[in-house]
Amino acid sequence: MAKNSAKGTARNAGERWRVIVYSVTALIALVGLADATFLTVAHLTGDDAVCGSSAGCSAVLGSAYAAVAGIPTAAFGALAYFVVFSTSVLASFGYARARTLLALVVAVMFAATLGLLYVQAFVLHAFCPFCLLSAALTFLLAGIVVATPSIR
């Protein structure tokens, strides 16, 4: 009886932990989604206001790397963040497969972010703050995925 009660308590704590972790990843994904949506709109409208007086930032957003096959790179980011958000919500409600998909998408985002950071640092020699914010969010997501065994 006491054993069952202890097991139940452990399960409840585990569930609570799962909900907290996936809520955090969902919130991070929401911030990333807002950031990537803003950058997508900026790209489509030619808005350079996001850059302030930084010509380097404008150079990044106006570069050939800012679009892939005519589609803004930020739009791929927005899609990725939306998938991360969706899988996080589903995972927090106990959908086991969503956890695997979440880890997979975050791994792809991590690799893409490394590539984009390389382009900014060594090809364009310029950075855009909103792109760096997205990179930081992806690293944060990757850190949570790696650090939380239940996600992997």
Partner: peptide
């Protein structure tokens, strides 16, 4: 259905806000 409702709501809000921003910023 709650998680799916949340996901759909976020999708709708994102597309809506994106469209509004686009219209506001269009040259």
């Amino acid at each position: 259905y709650l998680p799916f409702a949340i996901i759909v709501a976020v999708a709708v809000v994102t597309i809506g806000v994106g469209a509004m921003l686009y219209r506001a910023k269009m040259r």
